[in-house]
Computed example of a mutant assay.
Amino acid sequence: MTGRADRGARAKVVVVTGASGGIGRACARRFAARGDAVALLARGVNGLAAAAAEVRAAGGTALAIPVDVADFDAVDRAATRVEQELGPIDVWVNDAFTSVFAPVTEISAAEFRRVTEVTYLGYVHGTKAALARMLPRDRGAVVQVGSALAYRGIPLQSAYCAAKHAIQGFQDALRCELLHERSGVAATMVQMPAVNTPQFDWVLSRLPRRAQPVPPIYQPEVAARAVVYAADHPRRREYWVGGSTVATIAANKVIAGLLDRYLARTGYDSQQTAEPRPAGQAANLWRPADGAEGRDFGAHGRFDRRAHRRSPQAWLSRHARAVALGAAAAGVVWLARRPR
């Protein structure tokens, strides 16, 4: 395994949980493309192997570690292995999750518990493993991959929304503590829109029709660009990706009651296609969805034709200061040139 010193001073050691598919997979590729060493954490060995091959092909160093993030001891052991084989961890990206598509009444208590252990406590476990190593060095960045649903719950996704809300509260508290300590370690959160990932074919579903993201839908590479930028600029409190994320969070602040009624009318149909749900659809709640048949779900879901490859809002969010300075400079020029 190539050590960090062999890859050059600018290369970083990055840990990505949920790296076998979706946003995590796209993030791993983007970090690798700039020469970083990427530790890939997930349960599915088939997806991990394919993700590791992509990281190497992109120019990065890959270390694939099968782990269930619901198990803190396993996550902590994985972090130790990363530092032994790749070097000190510079960036930790929490992305792993699982969920259930169903009304509250059709989700068992055990299923709620499992979603919470993976999707919320998995972030806690990853963050604690990162902090245990970063704080003594007084440097490092933790990036929480969030969602507009961290602010706004929607029907049929109660378990996922609850976990994302919990992550938001955890992140707020953590950030205050790091600021209080004047720590060199920073934590930020990236709130995502609907993304074209395989989750809609591997999350446990009890819906009558196939699940889909609520449009507009973005490609996982849009999310990955935001995550990598956040990892390099983690002092900012959070990043919002996509105009729909901005609209959802803003609307929930001012017309939450009206939004309740709107989602009650539209939230069921907008999250399902016209196709019936396939019998025996894979589900990753209790075990990896890639299974024993060697299946790799990849980063993209089945909505490529409908997914946007760019987000003007996300670009503006990343370049807000430059845009503001440019607008100010243009204003000064205009004032200087206007007739007197």
Rank of each mutant, 00 (worst) to 15 (best):
T2H: 13
A11D: 06
V14C: 10
V15F: 03
G22Y: 00
A28K: 00
R29G: 04
G35K: 02
D36I: 01
L48G: 04
L48D: 04
R56F: 03
A57S: 10
A58E: 03
A62Y: 02
A64G: 09
V69L: 01
D73F: 06
D73Q: 12
V82T: 04
G87K: 03
W92Y: 11
N94I: 00
A96S: 08
T98Q: 01
F101Y: 10
A102P: 02
P103Q: 03
A110C: 08
E111L: 11
T116K: 13
E117S: 05
L121C: 03
M134T: 11
R137W: 08
D138E: 09
L149Y: 03
P155D: 10
P155F: 10
A166Q: 06
Q171I: 12
E177L: 10
H180C: 14
R182Y: 09
V185I: 08
P193G: 13
N196I: 04
N196F: 04
T197W: 05
F200P: 01
R210C: 14
A211G: 07
P216W: 08
I217P: 03
R225M: 04
R236D: 13
G242E: 04
G243V: 02
V254P: 04
A256C: 14
L258K: 14
R261C: 09
L263R: 12
Y268P: 10
P276S: 15
Q281L: 09
P288Q: 11
E293Q: 13
R295N: 05
R305G: 10
R306D: 15
H308W: 08
Q313H: 11
Q313G: 02
W315M: 11
L325F: 10
G326E: 08
A327F: 05
A330N: 07
